[in-house]
Design a protein around this nucleic acid. Structure first.
Lengths: 155, 155
DNA sequence: GTTGAAAGAGCATAGTT
DNA sequence: AACTATGCTCTTTCAAC
């Protein structure tokens, strides 16, 4: 179990969530500690698994992925491992959630338009043990943001 | 309109998507160009808006947000602006998509359990013009990954 | 696009409190 | 856990090609 986070840790996480490429020096200036201290804390947060990685966020339109859809996927639940592997191998599938209430997965997929979406669905339906899909197209994404430190105690 | 991406650009994007804190030097080594060139390309990708930011990814459990749910939100569509602002002001709401087929939004929320989820729903339902919600709880997230360069041309 | 060099910024280490 | 000192690495900005 990772240790409790104090205010300094939270500030570091908040800062790195909004700009992961800023320097230790800049971080140290905003949290008000020395560089080695901040570096130690950052490394501890990484080692403890609080920070799981640093990722560049890409503009969907620039990488030909400006069509988003959610796909409810019904399949034989005993074949989970194979289905998971097949989905993980398709880079158009960005998220896979097992949801309550319907014995199925919800996927978030991102593709280059409705044509590629159809191909993606073909590909998904070709996975053995998949029995059906139900797709909801996203007309417009109002916003999307990374998980922050303040998700639990706000408002 | 941003220029077409070549193979080197794609490699840079792929690398920065998987580790956004690596140095220009390391990047240059993997793409096989000089440091100044790689730095120029990276800056161009940032300026052109292909890279929209760099974010630390946090472990949901470590920041008290290990309960995920999707919320279908029905509301008076004429009040979009107010609804958008209210949702944007709630850090537990990570995504908001306008979807086809039902005249509503789909939200992704992340909270510290079912109690906080109930409070979040209370808060959302208290937004003027909201007429109803329908919530689907995520039992398990199989995987989640950042948008990559290969979303369009895979397999 | 390249190399090479020089200056400054940033980082890691060690030693202290 | 925190600090200061120091040496090393990396980046940046030139030049010339």
């Amino acid at each position: 179990m990772s240790r409790q986070l104090d205010e300094v840790d939270r500030t570091i996480l908040r800062e790195m969530t909004s700009d992961a490429r800023q320097t230790i020096r800049a971080l140290a200036a905003t949290v008000g500690l020395s560089e080695p201290s901040v570096r130690d804390r950052l490394q501890r947060l990484e080692r403890d698994g609080v920070i799981t990685g640093y990722h560049a966020a890409l503009d969907p339109a620039s990488v030909d992925a400006d069509t988003t859809a959610f796909v409810a996927l019904r399949f034989t639940m005993s074949a989970k491992a194979e289905v998971n592997a097949a989905l993980a191998g398709d880079p158009r599938v960005l998220e896979v959630h097992e949801v309550a209430g319907e014995d199925c997965y919800w996927l978030k997929v991102r593709v280059a338009g409705t044509g590629p979406l159809a191909e993606t669905l073909d590909h998904i339906r070709a996975i053995p043990s998949v029995t059906g899909t139900s797709t909801t197209i996203v007309l417009r994404t109002v916003f999307e943001r990374p998980l922050g430190v303040d998700a639990s105690g706000p408002r």
